[in-house]
Structure formats: C-alpha cells, structure tokens
C-alpha cells in the first residue's frame, strides 16, 4: 500500500463519479518515448497502485477512450498515427501530455526527427512533468484533467 496513491485515488474516485457517473477510459499513446514513461504507465495497474479500483480503465482502443495519455516528443514518424488516434477518439476528449518529452521534446528537443512536444500536434489539457513522472504524479495529472472537464461541463450547462 502506498499512502499517497490511496489519498489521491480516493479523491479521483469521487471526481470520476461526479464527472462521468461511470469509470474513466484512458488510451495510452506512445508517440516516441524512450519507454521509461511506459514503465510507469504499466506500474499504474500493478497490485500496489491498481488504478482500476478508483474507476480508471486503460482501454485497448481510442474509440472507447475519454482521455489520451500521450508520451514521447512526437516523432516525425508518429505524428500521423497520433493524429489518427486523436481523431478516432470520440469527443468530448481530454489529452494529457506525460513526461518531459511530451511537454517540450525534452532531451530530444530540436532534432530533425521530433516535433518538440504533444501540443505542437494536439490541444493539450494537462502537462505532467517528470522523466518519467512517478505513478502518483500521473494519477494527480488525471485528477487535474478531470477538474478541467468538470469546469467545461459547468460552462456548457
């Protein structure tokens, strides 16, 4: 058990219920990461963090997703697949840019083969810093994104 995860998780569970009334479906897209970020996304589902119990579900298809969790600087060769994935995700949708690379290109910034961050390609709702961000930071990022979603909902009604 990890206290930080538990605390964040309970808050998350409340928020997810409030905003969605069901669980939140997340699709992860590796847009050129070093795979370090994937290690931590995978850690979210182990028995210690076990995010499913807070109503977070990592899904296999963008068509089922409410949120894209994008890692990597967006390589030239992943730009088109990333756009396609985004377009296949039904709205309203959220984009979380996870890790230094996704935020700005990170250590690969300025290279011929990358686009220097997710917001060069898609509208980003939340940036989660870290290289890679710890699992708790990812959970917190998702929480912030949910808050934004709620705000947007409020504005519409």
């Amino acid at each position: 058990m990890d206290e930080e995860t538990e605390k964040l998780g309970e808050e998350l569970k409340r928020k997810v219920r409030e905003v969605f009334g069901r669980s939140l479906a997340i699709r992860e897209v590796d847009a050129g990461s070093c795979n370090g970020c994937e290690v931590e996304v995978n850690s979210l589902t182990n028995a210690i963090h076990d995010i499913e119990r807070f109503g977070l579900h990592i899904v296999a298809s963008p068509r089922h997703a409410d949120m894209l969790l994008v890692t990597g600087p967006v390589t030239r060769n992943m730009e088109i697949p990333l756009r396609q994935t985004y377009n296949a995700t039904p709205g309203p949708k959220m984009v979380v840019a996870m890790g230094s690379c996704a935020i700005s290109g990170g250590i690969y910034r300025g290279s011929y083969a990358v686009l220097d961050g997710v917001d060069k390609v898609l509208p980003v709702d939340v940036y989660v810093p870290g290289c890679p961000p710890r699992p708790q930071a990812i959970i917190q990022g998702i929480l912030v994104a949910l808050g934004k979603m709620e705000e947007r909902k409020g504005q519409r009604s």
Binding site: D30, G32, S33, C34, N35, G36, C37, E38, V39, G72, P73, T75, R76, N77, M78, P81, G106, I107, Y108, S111, Y112, A113, V114, C131, P132
Partner: peptide, 30 residues
C-alpha cells in the same frame, strides 16, 4: 520499425560529454 526514431546519434554529436550520460539513459528507458 522506425516509428520512434528520434535522431539520438545525431543529437549526441552536439551534446557535450557530461550531458551525454543523460542522453544515454534515454536511449531505451528501461
């Protein structure tokens, strides 16, 4: 393959040695 090609070898040519260690850690993160 090649989808995650980031140009690491080229980046290294303009990365001072002391910083190269950080780059090396991010070739294959695990």
């Amino acid at each position: 393959l090649g989808y995650v090609h980031k140009g690491i070898e080229k980046i290294s040519e303009s990365t001072p040695y002391w910083r190269g260690t950080h780059l090396a850690e991010r070739i294959s993160g695990d």
